[in-house]
Amino acid sequence: MRSRPSFVTDGAITRALAEHWQPVSEIAYLPWGFGAHHWRADTLFVTLDQLEPRHTAASLESTYASAAELAASGLEFVCAPVPARSGQFTVDTGVGALSVTPMLNGRSPAEDEVDKPAILAALDALHSTPPPAGLRHWSPQVGPNFAAELRSRTAEPWTSGPLAEEARTALAARADAIAWWNARYLELAAFAASRRDSWVPTHGEPHNDNQVLTPDGLRLVDWESLAVAPRERDYADLPDTAGLDPAMVELFALDWRLSELREYADWFSAPHIGSEDDVIALEGLHEELAAQVVGRE
């Protein structure tokens, strides 16, 4: 997130690190990414995850434990969390789940700088590895009533903040498209579930911002979305890869879009102040709503 969290201080993060991992001498907030808060603390990269709606405390812990297991199995590109003294990979701070990874010496490539052979090789290795026993399976991000409930929620004005009405009216204007996406998504999800025996470990978001080019090669970070799923889940930015099932590519395009719309609806119907993060979120909402409805438009 670009904005510092208002609900926790750097001092509180420093104390949690000292209690559960190691004492640190310097800490700095990093205005990176979107959805979680990050700090640099000496040689540690620190993440504070909000659990809902993607995780429970137990599912996030098992996800990070699974990432560590994959790294230990020989997948060197996995930048896995560092266990706390307890052996757990997450610590409940009361305002989110804290985790740490090593601070990598490298940079994330721009979209046109992605080393496609390297990321394809990493994904192939990941998908060929047996899934850890405790790793969760992907499931649909929204249910059959999502579109109808969203239509109802957007029927009356939102007064929750300066961007609320723009977000509400944008969602309401695309209600029919959202309903079609919702129905098509669940149809494809049911088809995917019928072939669960072919599912593999997937990163979930291996795009350029989650790739780090280091002197030792490519590293993939942010394993919060790790899950057993159809392999097409990992090819949103590489849709022309040979051998992909077009139906599963469509499923995960809709998976991303509908989960984003759900989160943006929750975001703008709740109190907000028009911060930089709010503005970025509104841009994201408009981008997702601009997608065409294949076969309908």
Rank of each mutant, 00 (worst) to 15 (best):
T43F: 01
N210S: 06
W181Q: 07
A122I: 08
N145R: 15
L44E: 00
D92P: 11
S59L: 08
V46F: 07
H207A: 10
V100G: 05
P246L: 08
D278F: 02
Y185P: 00
L75W: 02
H20N: 14
R40K: 12
L98T: 05
E156I: 06
A291N: 05
L44R: 08
A229G: 11
W223M: 09
D237T: 14
R257K: 13
A36Y: 02
P201D: 01
D49P: 02
V142A: 02
G243I: 10
T101G: 03
A179W: 00
L244P: 05
G134E: 10
A177L: 03
V249W: 01
F146V: 08
G134R: 12
L126G: 04
A58K: 11
C79S: 15
P230D: 13
T202W: 04
R219T: 07
D222N: 14
D245A: 14
D237I: 04
G204T: 10
D216C: 06
R168P: 06
P140K: 06
L220K: 11
V228D: 14
G74K: 08
F252E: 05
Y29A: 02
R151F: 04
S194Q: 14
Y29Q: 01
L282M: 10
D209P: 03
L188I: 12
E165V: 11
P102A: 15
E205A: 15
A173Q: 13
A183Y: 00
L226M: 11
R136N: 00
Y185A: 08
S128P: 06
L244V: 12
E149K: 13
H38G: 04
R219L: 03
T63H: 04
R2P: 01
D92W: 01
H207K: 08
R40A: 13
S269G: 04
W180S: 12
R219F: 03
E287Q: 12
E297P: 00
A18Q: 09
D266G: 15
L282C: 02
E205Y: 05
I280Q: 09
A155K: 06
R136D: 00
R233I: 04
L70N: 06
A84S: 14
A71D: 08
A97M: 15
G243P: 13
